[in-house]
Design a protein around this nucleic acid. Sequence first.
DNA 1: TGATCTTTTGTACGATAGTACAAATATGGT
DNA 2: ACCATATTTGTACTATCGTACAAAAGATCA
Lengths: 240, 240
Amino acid sequence: MVRKSPKVAGARKPNMREAILAAAEELFSTNGFNAVSVRDIAQAAGANPGSVTYHFETKDGLLLEIYKRHCGPMNLRRSELLSAAKRVRDLQDRLEAIVRAYVLPAFTSGSDLAGGGARFTRLRAVMSAEGNEVARKIIAQTFDDTSHAFIDAIHESLPHIPRNEIVWRSHFLLGALYYTLVTPERVSRLSRGSADGADPGLAIEELVRATVASFQAPPSDSTAPARRKAAATIKNQDER
Amino acid sequence: MVRKSPKVAGARKPNMREAILAAAEELFSTNGFNAVSVRDIAQAAGANPGSVTYHFETKDGLLLEIYKRHCGPMNLRRSELLSAAKRVRDLQDRLEAIVRAYVLPAFTSGSDLAGGGARFTRLRAVMSAEGNEVARKIIAQTFDDTSHAFIDAIHESLPHIPRNEIVWRSHFLLGALYYTLVTPERVSRLSRGSADGADPGLAIEELVRATVASFQAPPSDSTAPARRKAAATIKNQDER
DNA sequence: TGATCTTTTGTACGATAGTACAAATATGGT
DNA sequence: ACCATATTTGTACTATCGTACAAAAGATCA
C-alpha cells in the first residue's frame, strides 16, 4: 500500500501541473494576463497546450489556481509575523515590526515555492493594474481580512491617528510595494547605478523606513492651524 | 473664406481623431493594452476600425500618440510648479510644495484635455505594470529628466538625507500615486465607506502628507546605533 | 461645377487566440 | 500480464485579432 496517492505523487518525476503553474506565474507576472497565451505557457513549461486545459480547464482557471496556491501560505505567514510584532512593547519598535510583518512575506516566499513571494506579489500588482476580474474577486475575499488586521494593529500603536488616515497610508504602502516589484530597474536607473532596485533586502529596509515615517505623520484634518500659509499659496497657483 | 482650417476645424463637427484618442485612452487605462482591441476602440469612438489604421497606422502608433499628446503638457506643468515651489523659503514648506508640484499634475489635467491628467497617469501605471515596450521607451526618455529635477530639488531641501534615499522614497511616491489611481475603490472599501478613494482632492492631501513625512525619515544606513534591537529580534523570527 | 485631396467605410486576409476532443501513452493495483 | 485510470499529445474548430486596401463620401478651392 504505502502511499500510492493518485495525485501529487510525492516528488520523483517532474510534475507537469507544477511546471505549468510556475511558467504561468512567471509569464503573467511579467507580461500581464492577456499578453500571454496558453501556448506560451505550455511551451515555457515544456508541455502541450492540451495539458493546460486538462489540469485547469480554462485560462481563468489557471490564474485562479495560482492565487489559491499562494494566498493561504502568505496570509498565514503574515498572521504569524503580525502576532509576534504585536507583542513588541515599545510603540515605535512595534510599529516598525508590524510594517515589516506586512512587507516581508510579500518579498520572500510565503511557502516552499522557490522565490515565489516576490513573483506572486508582482503578479497581484499586474492583475490589479489590468483590472482582472478573477483577481479582483479573490483579492477582496482573501486579503481584506488581513488588511484590516494590519490596519487595526497599526492603529493601536498610533492611537492619535484617525483610522482613515491609516487606511490611506497602508494603501500607499501597498502601491509602493507593488511598484517596486514591478519596476525595480527604475530605481537603479535613477540612482545612477549606486542602488539596486532588485535587491529585496535593500528594498525592504527602505520601504519599511519610509513607511513607518509616513504612518507617524500628523493627521491631515483639523490640525496644525499654523503652517498652512505657504502651502496654500502654492496651491492657489496650481489651480490657476 | 473665414477660417476653413483643414484640420481641427474649430469646433462644430466631432473630430474623429480626437474621439479615437479619447476612447483608446479610457479603454487602455482601465483594461490594459492587450485586453482592448482596435475594434473596441473604434466602437467606443463611434468610428470604423479602418479609421484607426488611417490615423495612427498601428495599435502601437495609437498608444505612442497618446503619450506624445500628454507628456509635454504634464512635464511643463510640473516644471512651472517646481520652479514656484523652489522659491519657498521655509525648508519644511518647500518640501511640501515640491511634493505637491509632483503630485498635482498627475491628478488634474496637464492640458486642456478634460480630466486627462488622472486618466493618463492611470494609463502609465497600467502600461508600466504590463511591461509595455512602447511605453517603457517613452517613459525613460521623457520622464527621467523630470524625475531627476524633482529628486534634486527634494535633496536640496533635505541635505542630510543621501540622494539614494530620496530616489527610493520618490519611487515609493510614484507607486502610491499609481496605485491610488488604479484602485481607488479599495480605499473606500477598507475605510468602510467613510473615505472616498476616488476623490482627487482628498487623495492628493493624504498622499502629500504621508510622502513628506516619508522623505523626512532618518536615513537607513549607519545611523541610529541604538534602537536596532527589537527590530532585529523580529527579523530573525521572520527568516526562521 | 469639376478636380483634387482627405477622411471614412466596408470588407477581407492571414495569424493567433482559447478550448474541445479523440487517440496515444504512462501509471499503478491486482 | 492485464486492466482501469490518469495524463499527455496532436489536431481541429470557431472566434477574434491587427492590419491592408479598394471604394465611397466629404471637403476645398480654381
